[in-house]
Amino acid sequence: MKSFIKEIIAYMNARKKWWLMPILVVLIAFGALLVLAQGSAIAPFIYTIF
């Protein structure tokens, strides 16, 4: 997780998209809730999701 956070910060810095950070945090938190509710990471194949 530590290296992931480091990577995210490096990416934000490179892309100059700091405005995305609060949205990212909220969406990831929301997404995490969905993970907990679902318990599975299997999704149907939709071209652009991946």
Binding site: F4, G31, V35, A41, A43, I46, I49, F50
Partner: peptide
């Protein structure tokens, strides 16, 4: 609906692709 499908895959797996 698409978000609901995509997020679990990304949060559990794809965001950590480097690791």
């Amino acid at each position: 609906n698409s978000f609901r499908m995509a997020m679990p895959v990304w949060i559990k797996d794809k965001l950590f692709q480097k690791d």
